[in-house]
Simulated assay, not measured.
Amino acid sequence: MTQTNLLELARAGDVRAIASLINHQLQPKGITAKATLKDDCLQIMLESAQVPNQQALVTFIRKWITQLGVECIKRVKVYGRLTGDEFPSWSQDFEATSVGNNAQSETSIPSTKNSVSENSKTSTNQDNLKIIASPRIQFQSKTSCPRTYLVPSILVTLFACIPAGLVGISFASQVKSKYQQGDYDSALSASKKAKISCIIGVSIGGFIFVTAFVHGFRQGFQKSIQRQVATRQQSIAPYVPPAVISHPSEYLPPIETYLETNPVHNALSQLDGHAYLMGADNVFLGIISSDRINEKSICNQVGEFGSRVTSKSVWNRVGDYGSRISDTSAYKTNTNQPPIIVNENNEIIGFLTVNTRIKGAVDPDFLHAAMCQQ
């Protein structure tokens, strides 16, 4: 197609002819032009391997379009990008004005190198256009619709934060419609707002999740401790209230020698059914009772606290509370942590031990003979 035919088509509003004429002028500079026409707005994309100068290109396009004088073009929007990029980083628009038919006939229209008659006029435009590298340039095209973030917004609504997710969905739904209307700037703005809404929603949802997890873990830990305490209390209830003896070893007197007779020895008969044994490690060891049927009696030979084979019996000579080597045993001669004798008022009245250096010591064999061999 001849240059004259291209010029006529361009003046008639043919975007392919407009792009072709611009490319004749800019391609020697390494810049490729694409053009689209929507309603009365001409959109021109300029791309190259190096970023062209925005001001120089917009000045050139403005002058060229004005001289071309296309009546159907009322507004022009110019974008720039690096070849292969998706989104524009700069854009500029201006109103297109016509200079009349006489001026149009003298317009310097871009031409090929073979068009000698128009080279002198075209050179003026070329001199005005100085292609200078500038920061990164992008351009809007039909393949460069900004990301909508619709799916992330829906996921945020369902699993993170409903308010932020709904805001994200609202902006996400505007992206394509704005883009299809040719309003790329609004589409890009809606995309960014949808992204920000997703980030805020995920942040809020994450904070709530972490807070709930920490709170639940703390509550679960506290309940576990409470269950352990309740289980220990149930094992000795109703004989010992909740915090009767926190650290039995604190009640142990200094190791001394006492020559006087322990009054507890003479009052064992009064303890029958009215006192119990507690290990230095806070373990209930049975009721001091001659009742051989009571399951908690130290005289019940088949019970947990009176048998010679159970772990909580002071009569088990290989157990923690009856052997000769355990520190909590009643039969270790040098222990300072023997089983404790507690009355029904939860008062410590003595210690069940063969260590006579401990004040208030009651010989376990003497107690067994007094209670269990009646």
Rank of each mutant, 00 (worst) to 15 (best):
V283T: 10
Q55S: 08
G69S: 15
V116L: 13
F139H: 08
A160G: 03
F207C: 09
K113V: 03
V362C: 04
E95Y: 06
V283G: 01
Q138Y: 11
W90H: 10
A160R: 06
Q233F: 12
P254W: 00
I131R: 09
Q140T: 11
D363C: 09
T4W: 12
A56Q: 14
S170M: 11
E304L: 14
G322M: 09
P364F: 08
K223I: 14
Q174V: 04
G350W: 07
V302Q: 15
Y184G: 15
Q174M: 15
L42S: 05
K29Q: 13
L68E: 11
A19Y: 03
I225V: 06
R11W: 05
K63N: 11
A330T: 08
I298M: 10
V99A: 13
D127F: 02
S289W: 13
Q55L: 04
A10D: 10
L158A: 14
T356D: 13
G350T: 09
G279A: 15
N128Y: 04
T356S: 15
G319H: 10
P248V: 03
V302R: 14
K193T: 10
L285V: 07
R62P: 01
V244L: 04
L82F: 00
S313G: 07
R308L: 08
E8T: 02
D93N: 11
T143A: 13
G303K: 05
C161I: 04
W90L: 06
K38F: 12
Q67H: 06
T32L: 12
N282G: 08
N343S: 06
Y184F: 15
I287S: 02
N128T: 05
D320T: 14
Y276P: 01
T32P: 00
R357M: 10
S289G: 13
G279M: 10
K223F: 10
A35G: 09
Q233Y: 12
S115C: 09
A370K: 12
V116C: 01
F207R: 00
L259S: 11
S115G: 00
C145Q: 15
L6P: 01
P241K: 13
K178F: 15
E256N: 11
Y276K: 04
K195Q: 15
V116P: 04
R75A: 01
L158P: 05
F60S: 03
L26P: 04
P163M: 07
V264W: 01
S89M: 00
I288E: 03
K121E: 03
G306N: 11
D281A: 09
A35P: 05
Q3V: 08
Q301W: 01
N102R: 09
S177H: 09
L259K: 06
G206M: 11
F139Y: 12
M371N: 04
K332Y: 02
H215S: 03
S307N: 08
R16I: 07
I22M: 15
G206E: 05
D183P: 04
L57D: 03
R16T: 14
